[in-house]
C-alpha cells in the first residue's frame, strides 16, 4: 500500500518536473521563434504557401538589400550618427558621472532620477519638441541633429553606468598608489584609468546600441540624407517586401545580440532594467 503511494508520488513529482520543463521550453520557443523565422526568411527562396521551411536557399535578398535598398549608405549614416551620439554622451557622462559617483552632491537621489527621466518618459513626448527646435536651428536631416537627438536618451544611460563605475572605485587602492610615491598623474594613468576603462567601454557599447536601434527620435528628425537602418527597416515593413526586410533586420540586430551576450557575462541583468529600455 505504502509502496504504491510512493510510486504515485514519484510519478507526480516527475510529471511536475516535466510540466516545468515543457513550460520553460515553450517560453523559450515563444521568445525566439520570431528571430528564427526572420533568419530563415532572409535566406529562403520560393517560401510561399503552407510550408514549414523554405524550399531553396539564397543570398539574393541580402544582395537586393545592398543594391536596391542602398543599405551600405544607410548603414554608414547609422554608424556616423551613432558615433556622434556616443561621443557627445560620453563627454557629458564622464564629468557628470564622476560628480554623482565620487563627490558629495546635495539631493543626489533626486538629481539622479531627474537625469534618468528621459528614459522613463516615452520619447515621442519630447521628440515633438526636439523636432520643432531642430527645425528652427536647421538641424533636421543633419548628422549632427539626429545624433544630438539621440543624446537625449543615450546620455542618461551613460551617466548611470559611469557613475556606478566611478562609485565602485576603491579609495584604498588610490591611497596605496599615493603612499607608494606615485604622483597624481601617474596614479591616474596607471591605477584609476585601468580600473574604470571596462566601465567606460561598456557605457560606450550600450550607448552605441541604443543609438543604433533608436527609432522614435530618428523618425522625428530624419530626412532623405539621414535615413538610418531602423527607419529604413520600418519603411520596408510597410512596403511589404518582407524577404528584403528580413535581410535588413538581420543586419540591424547584430549589435543587440553582442550586447546581450555581454550583459550575460559581465553584468547583473537586474541592474540594467531600471535604466535600460529598448523602446
Amino acid at each position: 500500500m505504502r509502496n504504491l503511494a510512493t510510486v504515485y508520488w514519484r510519478a507526480l513529482v516527475q510529471r511536475k518536473r516535466l510540466l516545468g520543463t515543457v513550460f520553460l521550453w515553450t517560453f523559450f520557443l515563444w521568445i525566439t521563434t520570431p528571430f528564427m523565422i526572420i533568419m530563415l526568411k532572409s535566406v529562403g527562396r520560393n517560401w510561399f504557401g503552407r510550408k514549414w521551411l523554405p524550399p531553396n536557399l539564397t543570398l539574393d535578398w541580402y544582395r537586393w538589400a545592398v543594391t536596391v535598398a542602398n543599405i551600405p549608405r544607410i548603414l554608414a549614416n547609422t554608424l556616423i550618427i551613432a558615433a556622434i551620439a556616443v561621443t557627445i554622451s560620453t563627454l557629458i557622462a564622464l564629468p557628470t558621472g564622476w560628480a554623482l559617483g565620487r563627490r558629495k552632491v546635495r539631493g543626489k537621489e533626486l538629481l539622479t532620477s531627474i537625469i534618468l527621466l528621459p528614459r522613463m518618459i516615452p520619447p515621442i513626448a519630447y521628440a515633438l519638441g526636439v523636432a520643432q527646435i531642430f527645425y528652427r536651428l536647421h538641424l533636421v536631416d543633419k548628422y549632427l541633429g539626429v545624433g544630438l537627438a539621440h543624446v537625449a536618451i543615450c546620455a542618461p544611460y551613460a551617466t548611470l553606468v559611469l557613475s556606478s563605475t566611478f562609485q565602485a572605485l576603491d579609495d584604498r587602492v588610490l591611497e596605496a598608489s599615493a603612499v607608494c610615491g606615485a604622483n597624481q598623474l601617474r596614479t591616474f594613468f596607471h591605477v584609476t584609468l585601468p580600473m574604470v576603462l571596462p566601465g567606460i567601454l561598456s557605457s560606450i557599447i550600450f550607448t552605441f546600441t541604443t543609438s543604433y536601434n533608436e527609432l522614435t527620435l530618428t523618425l522625428m528628425t530624419y530626412g532623405p540624407h539621414t535615413i538610418t537602418l531602423p527607419v529604413r527597416t520600418y519603411l520596408a515593413v510597410g512596403e511589404g517586401y518582407w524577404e528584403v526586410t528580413s535581410a535588413m533586420s538581420m543586419i540591424l540586430v547584430i549589435p543587440s545580440f553582442f550586447v546581450l551576450f555581454m550583459i550575460q557575462r559581465e553584468i547583473a541583468p537586474e541592474k540594467l532594467v531600471g535604466g535600460f529600455k529598448g523602446v
Binding site: 527609432l215 540591424l252 540586430v253 545580440f257 546581450l260 550583459i263 532594467v273 529598448g278
Partner: peptide, 14 residues
C-alpha cells in the same frame, strides 16, 4: 532579456 535588448521593431516584424 532578448525582448528588451533587441529593437522592438525587429521583434514586431518577427
Amino acid at each position: 532579456l532578448v525582448p528588451i535588448t533587441v529593437p522592438g521593431l525587429i521583434g514586431a516584424f518577427g
